[in-house]
Write a protein that binds this DNA or RNA. Structure first.
Lengths: 117, 117
DNA sequence: ATGTCATATTCCTATATCGGTATATAGTGT
DNA sequence: ACACTATATACCGATATAGGAATATGACAT
Protein backbone atom coordinates (compact mmCIF):
# COMPACT_ATOMS: atom_id res chain seq x y z
CA UNK A 1 0.00 0.00 0.00
CA UNK A 2 1.09 3.54 -0.61
CA UNK A 3 0.46 6.73 1.27
CA UNK A 4 -3.15 7.82 1.48
CA UNK A 5 -4.30 10.03 -1.39
CA UNK A 6 -4.04 13.75 -0.84
CA UNK A 7 -7.75 13.81 -1.59
CA UNK A 8 -8.47 11.25 1.11
CA UNK A 9 -9.33 13.88 3.70
CA UNK A 10 -8.57 17.41 4.82
CA UNK A 11 -5.55 16.28 6.82
CA UNK A 12 -3.83 14.95 3.73
CA UNK A 13 -4.92 17.79 1.48
CA UNK A 14 -3.58 20.39 3.84
CA UNK A 15 -0.26 18.70 4.47
CA UNK A 16 1.01 20.45 1.36
CA UNK A 17 2.21 23.98 2.25
CA UNK A 18 1.18 25.40 -1.10
CA UNK A 19 -2.38 24.31 -0.50
CA UNK A 20 -2.40 25.98 2.90
CA UNK A 21 -1.16 29.14 1.23
CA UNK A 22 -4.01 28.96 -1.24
CA UNK A 23 -6.54 28.64 1.54
CA UNK A 24 -4.94 31.55 3.36
CA UNK A 25 -5.25 33.68 0.25
CA UNK A 26 -8.86 32.66 -0.26
CA UNK A 27 -9.57 33.66 3.33
CA UNK A 28 -9.32 37.20 1.97
CA UNK A 29 -12.23 36.55 -0.35
CA UNK A 30 -13.22 34.85 -3.57
CA UNK A 31 -10.50 34.91 -6.23
CA UNK A 32 -9.93 33.75 -9.79
CA UNK A 33 -7.15 31.26 -10.51
CA UNK A 34 -4.82 33.78 -12.10
CA UNK A 35 -4.86 35.92 -8.99
CA UNK A 36 -3.62 32.95 -7.05
CA UNK A 37 -1.03 32.16 -9.70
CA UNK A 38 0.35 35.68 -9.38
CA UNK A 39 0.37 35.73 -5.62
CA UNK A 40 1.87 32.28 -5.24
CA UNK A 41 4.54 32.60 -7.90
CA UNK A 42 3.62 29.14 -9.07
CA UNK A 43 2.82 27.86 -12.55
CA UNK A 44 -0.83 27.87 -13.53
CA UNK A 45 -1.26 24.10 -14.00
CA UNK A 46 0.19 23.49 -10.55
CA UNK A 47 -2.30 25.88 -9.02
CA UNK A 48 -5.18 24.28 -10.87
CA UNK A 49 -4.08 20.90 -9.63
CA UNK A 50 -3.85 22.06 -6.04
CA UNK A 51 -7.28 23.62 -6.37
CA UNK A 52 -8.65 20.33 -7.59
CA UNK A 53 -7.41 18.58 -4.48
CA UNK A 54 -8.90 21.26 -2.28
CA UNK A 55 -12.17 20.96 -4.14
CA UNK A 56 -12.26 17.20 -3.70
CA UNK A 57 -11.99 17.50 0.05
CA UNK A 58 -14.56 20.27 0.09
CA UNK A 59 -12.22 23.00 1.28
CA UNK A 60 -13.07 25.28 -1.65
CA UNK A 61 -16.02 25.84 -3.94
CA UNK A 62 -15.93 27.11 -7.51
CA UNK A 63 -18.20 29.43 -9.39
CA UNK A 64 -17.88 30.22 -13.06
CA UNK A 65 -17.98 33.81 -14.18
CA UNK A 66 -17.30 34.28 -17.83
CA UNK A 67 -14.06 32.54 -18.58
CA UNK A 68 -12.90 32.88 -15.02
CA UNK A 69 -13.38 30.39 -12.23
CA UNK A 70 -13.87 32.08 -8.92
CA UNK A 71 -12.71 30.01 -5.99
CA UNK A 72 -14.16 30.52 -2.57
CA UNK A 73 -12.97 29.16 0.77
CA UNK A 74 -15.09 26.65 2.63
CA UNK A 75 -13.42 26.55 6.01
CA UNK A 76 -15.90 24.07 7.42
CA UNK A 77 -13.88 21.30 5.79
CA UNK A 78 -11.10 22.11 8.23
CA UNK A 79 -13.20 21.53 11.32
CA UNK A 80 -12.06 17.91 11.79
CA UNK A 81 -8.48 19.12 11.96
CA UNK A 82 -9.37 21.79 14.46
CA UNK A 83 -11.40 19.37 16.54
CA UNK A 84 -8.58 16.90 16.69
CA UNK A 85 -5.73 19.25 17.43
CA UNK A 86 -7.75 21.21 19.97
CA UNK A 87 -7.46 18.32 22.37
CA UNK A 88 -3.74 19.00 22.57
CA UNK A 89 -3.97 22.72 23.18
CA UNK A 90 -3.40 22.21 26.90
CA UNK A 91 0.11 21.00 26.15
CA UNK A 92 1.41 24.45 25.35
CA UNK A 93 -1.16 27.02 26.45
CA UNK A 94 -0.48 28.68 29.80
CA UNK A 95 -4.14 29.50 30.12
CA UNK A 96 -4.76 25.82 30.71
CA UNK A 97 -2.44 25.94 33.69
CA UNK A 98 -4.92 28.25 35.36
CA UNK A 99 -7.77 25.98 34.36
CA UNK A 100 -5.88 23.05 35.83
CA UNK A 101 -5.60 24.92 39.10
CA UNK A 102 -9.35 25.47 39.17
CA UNK A 103 -9.98 21.81 38.40
CA UNK A 104 -7.64 20.78 41.18
CA UNK A 105 -9.66 22.92 43.54
CA UNK A 106 -12.86 21.28 42.39
CA UNK A 107 -11.38 17.84 42.89
CA UNK A 108 -10.29 18.73 46.39
CA UNK A 109 -13.85 19.79 47.17
CA UNK A 110 -15.22 16.57 45.70
CA UNK A 111 -13.07 14.65 48.11
CA UNK A 112 -14.89 16.33 50.96
CA UNK A 113 -12.76 19.33 51.82
CA UNK A 114 -15.69 21.68 51.38
CA UNK A 115 -18.26 22.89 53.91
CA UNK A 116 -21.49 21.39 52.49
CA UNK A 117 -20.58 17.75 52.70
CA UNK B 1 9.33 16.03 -7.30
CA UNK B 2 7.33 13.76 -5.07
CA UNK B 3 5.17 14.48 -2.11
CA UNK B 4 6.92 15.99 0.89
CA UNK B 5 8.33 13.47 3.34
CA UNK B 6 6.08 12.46 6.19
CA UNK B 7 8.89 13.62 8.43
CA UNK B 8 8.98 17.05 6.82
CA UNK B 9 6.75 18.60 9.46
CA UNK B 10 3.91 17.89 11.86
CA UNK B 11 1.30 18.45 9.15
CA UNK B 12 2.66 15.62 7.05
CA UNK B 13 3.35 13.33 9.98
CA UNK B 14 -0.17 13.68 11.29
CA UNK B 15 -1.89 13.18 7.95
CA UNK B 16 -1.67 9.46 8.61
CA UNK B 17 -4.66 8.36 10.74
CA UNK B 18 -2.68 5.65 12.50
CA UNK B 19 -0.22 8.21 13.75
CA UNK B 20 -3.02 10.36 15.09
CA UNK B 21 -4.33 7.29 16.89
CA UNK B 22 -0.92 6.73 18.40
CA UNK B 23 -0.79 10.29 19.67
CA UNK B 24 -4.29 9.95 21.07
CA UNK B 25 -3.24 6.84 22.96
CA UNK B 26 -0.13 8.52 24.28
CA UNK B 27 -2.28 11.37 25.51
CA UNK B 28 -3.31 8.90 28.22
CA UNK B 29 0.28 8.66 29.40
CA UNK B 30 3.65 7.16 28.61
CA UNK B 31 3.44 3.71 27.04
CA UNK B 32 5.76 0.98 25.75
CA UNK B 33 5.57 -0.02 22.11
CA UNK B 34 3.82 -3.31 22.73
CA UNK B 35 0.96 -1.56 24.50
CA UNK B 36 0.41 0.46 21.36
CA UNK B 37 0.69 -2.63 19.19
CA UNK B 38 -2.07 -4.30 21.20
CA UNK B 39 -4.35 -1.29 21.24
CA UNK B 40 -3.91 -0.48 17.57
CA UNK B 41 -4.19 -4.02 16.26
CA UNK B 42 -1.26 -3.29 14.01
CA UNK B 43 1.94 -5.25 13.43
CA UNK B 44 4.87 -4.26 15.62
CA UNK B 45 7.19 -3.11 12.83
CA UNK B 46 4.48 -0.82 11.50
CA UNK B 47 4.06 0.76 14.90
CA UNK B 48 7.80 1.23 15.31
CA UNK B 49 7.95 2.92 11.93
CA UNK B 50 5.10 5.25 12.77
CA UNK B 51 6.78 6.09 16.04
CA UNK B 52 9.97 6.93 14.22
CA UNK B 53 8.14 9.44 12.07
CA UNK B 54 6.52 10.97 15.12
CA UNK B 55 9.90 11.14 16.81
CA UNK B 56 11.48 12.88 13.84
CA UNK B 57 8.92 15.66 13.92
CA UNK B 58 9.24 15.94 17.68
CA UNK B 59 5.73 14.79 18.50
CA UNK B 60 6.95 12.04 20.81
CA UNK B 61 9.96 11.41 23.00
CA UNK B 62 11.43 8.05 23.96
CA UNK B 63 12.92 6.80 27.17
CA UNK B 64 14.54 3.42 27.59
CA UNK B 65 13.55 1.27 30.55
CA UNK B 66 15.10 -2.13 30.48
CA UNK B 67 14.27 -3.67 27.14
CA UNK B 68 11.22 -1.48 26.77
CA UNK B 69 11.05 1.88 25.07
CA UNK B 70 8.58 4.18 26.75
CA UNK B 71 7.07 6.70 24.39
CA UNK B 72 5.72 9.96 25.67
CA UNK B 73 3.61 12.55 23.91
CA UNK B 74 5.06 15.95 23.14
CA UNK B 75 2.01 17.90 22.09
CA UNK B 76 3.94 21.10 21.58
CA UNK B 77 4.93 19.82 18.14
CA UNK B 78 1.28 20.16 17.15
CA UNK B 79 1.07 23.84 17.94
CA UNK B 80 1.79 24.97 14.35
CA UNK B 81 -1.20 22.97 13.20
CA UNK B 82 -3.39 24.44 15.87
CA UNK B 83 -2.18 27.95 15.15
CA UNK B 84 -2.90 27.60 11.47
CA UNK B 85 -6.31 26.00 11.68
CA UNK B 86 -7.44 28.29 14.47
CA UNK B 87 -7.67 31.12 11.97
CA UNK B 88 -10.52 29.28 10.29
CA UNK B 89 -12.52 28.55 13.42
CA UNK B 90 -14.83 31.46 12.72
CA UNK B 91 -16.08 29.64 9.63
CA UNK B 92 -18.12 27.14 11.62
CA UNK B 93 -18.33 28.30 15.21
CA UNK B 94 -21.55 30.12 16.14
CA UNK B 95 -19.74 31.70 19.03
CA UNK B 96 -17.90 33.83 16.51
CA UNK B 97 -21.19 35.20 15.31
CA UNK B 98 -21.66 36.73 18.73
CA UNK B 99 -18.11 38.00 18.70
CA UNK B 100 -18.72 39.53 15.30
CA UNK B 101 -21.70 41.36 16.71
CA UNK B 102 -19.55 42.77 19.50
CA UNK B 103 -16.88 43.83 17.04
CA UNK B 104 -19.48 45.53 14.88
CA UNK B 105 -20.57 47.48 17.92
CA UNK B 106 -17.02 48.52 18.63
CA UNK B 107 -16.52 49.63 15.07
CA UNK B 108 -19.66 51.70 15.20
CA UNK B 109 -18.37 53.41 18.32
CA UNK B 110 -15.01 54.03 16.67
CA UNK B 111 -16.78 55.84 13.91
CA UNK B 112 -18.10 58.32 16.44
CA UNK B 113 -21.47 56.95 17.50
CA UNK B 114 -20.45 56.89 21.14
CA UNK B 115 -20.89 59.61 23.81
CA UNK B 116 -17.25 60.41 24.68
CA UNK B 117 -16.07 61.51 21.27
C1' DA C 1 -14.38 31.02 -38.30
C1' DT C 2 -10.36 32.65 -35.84
C1' DG C 3 -7.59 34.28 -32.33
C1' DT C 4 -6.99 35.08 -27.58
C1' DC C 5 -7.57 34.70 -22.69
C1' DA C 6 -8.47 31.69 -18.49
C1' DT C 7 -8.30 27.32 -16.79
C1' DA C 8 -8.10 22.24 -16.76
C1' DT C 9 -6.12 17.93 -18.09
C1' DT C 10 -2.63 14.70 -19.74
C1' DC C 11 1.85 12.70 -19.86
C1' DC C 12 6.29 12.43 -17.84
C1' DT C 13 9.87 11.29 -14.15
C1' DA C 14 11.71 10.93 -9.56
C1' DT C 15 10.66 9.97 -5.11
C1' DA C 16 8.60 8.63 -0.81
C1' DT C 17 5.52 6.25 1.03
C1' DC C 18 2.66 2.00 3.62
C1' DG C 19 2.12 -2.60 4.77
C1' DG C 20 4.26 -7.25 4.90
C1' DT C 21 8.01 -10.24 5.94
C1' DA C 22 12.42 -11.24 7.51
C1' DT C 23 16.11 -10.06 10.13
C1' DA C 24 19.02 -7.32 13.33
C1' DT C 25 19.90 -5.29 17.84
C1' DA C 26 19.78 -5.19 22.62
C1' DG C 27 18.45 -6.23 27.44
C1' DT C 28 17.12 -10.10 30.81
C1' DG C 29 17.24 -14.42 32.94
C1' DT C 30 19.36 -19.05 33.49
C1' DA D 1 26.85 -19.04 26.20
C1' DC D 2 21.84 -19.51 25.25
C1' DA D 3 17.13 -18.73 24.97
C1' DC D 4 13.63 -15.23 25.26
C1' DT D 5 11.53 -10.78 25.06
C1' DA D 6 11.07 -6.00 23.18
C1' DT D 7 11.97 -3.11 19.61
C1' DA D 8 14.19 -1.39 15.38
C1' DT D 9 15.73 -1.81 10.74
C1' DA D 10 16.12 -3.58 5.92
C1' DC D 11 14.07 -5.07 1.89
C1' DC D 12 10.14 -5.56 -1.27
C1' DG D 13 6.07 -4.18 -4.05
C1' DA D 14 2.40 -1.19 -5.31
C1' DT D 15 0.86 3.28 -5.51
C1' DA D 16 0.32 8.23 -5.42
C1' DT D 17 2.27 11.93 -5.55
C1' DA D 18 4.55 17.20 -7.15
C1' DG D 19 6.44 19.85 -10.56
C1' DG D 20 7.35 20.57 -15.59
C1' DA D 21 5.86 20.78 -20.31
C1' DA D 22 2.53 20.30 -23.68
C1' DT D 23 -2.03 20.25 -24.89
C1' DA D 24 -7.09 20.44 -24.43
C1' DT D 25 -11.32 22.88 -23.22
C1' DG D 26 -14.21 26.72 -23.05
C1' DA D 27 -15.61 31.64 -23.18
C1' DC D 28 -15.24 35.97 -25.45
C1' DA D 29 -14.29 39.32 -29.12
C1' DT D 30 -13.81 40.53 -33.96
Amino acid sequence: MARAATTADAFNAVAEPRRREILDLLAGGERPVNDLVDQLGLAQPQVSKHLRVLREVGAVDVRAQGRQRLYRLNGRALKPIHDWVKGYERMWSERFDELDAVLDDLKRKERGDDDDE
